[in-house]
Amino acid sequence: MPRSIWRGAISFGLVNVPVKLYSAVSKKTVRFNQLHATDHARINMKRVCSVEGEEVPFDQIVKGYEISPDRYVVIEPAELEALDPKKTRTIDIEEFVDIEQIDPLYYEHPYYLMPDTGAAKAYRLLLQALRESGKVAIARVVIRQKEYLTAIRPAGDNRDVLTMETMLFSDELIDPEQIDEYPDSDVEATEREVKMAQQLVESLSTDFDPSKYHDTYREQVLDLIERKAQGEEIAVQAAPEEPQEVPDLMAALEASLAAAKTEKKKEPSKPASKPAAKSRNGAAPKKRASASAPKKRTKTKA
């Protein structure tokens, strides 16, 4: 079950709705561990003091802000919390707007807001008011030392739950005109071309069904991992001491063949299994496959 990442209250006017915040996203990205290529041991990250070269324990690490090269102001966590204690516990609704007025570019990350103990009724009230008015609440909230602009609205599909989307501040969004390739406005398409393009759009128009789409790249990566895991090439944690050489399959094949040959000469009944000495004699027919004609295994009716 997902765990809530924050507890507080939505506040607007005189109403206070205690809520818990849950991320609405479970990222499915495949995560890899870093391994040492030669022995497949895990790579450890160490926090090392750049002056002493020694590892530094967590309790000796503080936050610093670089005000000019190599000059830092050190900030304690308590100092940050003291800045605005109220804001760190509430989601302050500032206004209500029509959803169409929000450019989706602003949306950053979706969350669910769930009613906390005793908040069922107030939560329901807010949900219903938003749904019936068709409006979205614009609110501010501070989570983990960062203030967010958020949009609160009922979930789609008529689910009785409030969602909160964190949004970018307008100065965080890059103005596209700052990009060199910003499209020229004096290029024009003819009416006929536009009409044709529209027809194409029309012919491909359908209802959006997100379940139709899968992360096929991820599926392939997982598939690759599964296949490798089933085969022999799993990166096994090497025992720290003994470094192993990658076996040369061709040499192994040769050794097995040599073993099979010598065993056959001595005792034809025993199956080849033991490692061979070395010997790369034989098996080099000049013209024909081999003089030691292989047993006739195939049955021929004719």
């Binding site: 094949l253 097995s256 063949l257 099979a260 040959k261 056959k264 199956p271 080849a272 098996a283 027919p285 013209k287 024909r288 496959a289 081999s290 030691s292 292989p294 047993k295 295994r297 195939t298």
Partner: peptide
């Protein structure tokens, strides 16, 4: 055919029948 016959014999020595 010559290569096939060699492969057949070699696979046979490894306990594998081929067609």
């Amino acid at each position: 055919a010559r290569v096939a016959l060699w492969l057949r014999e070699t696979l046979g020595e490894l306990g594998l029948e081929s067609f």
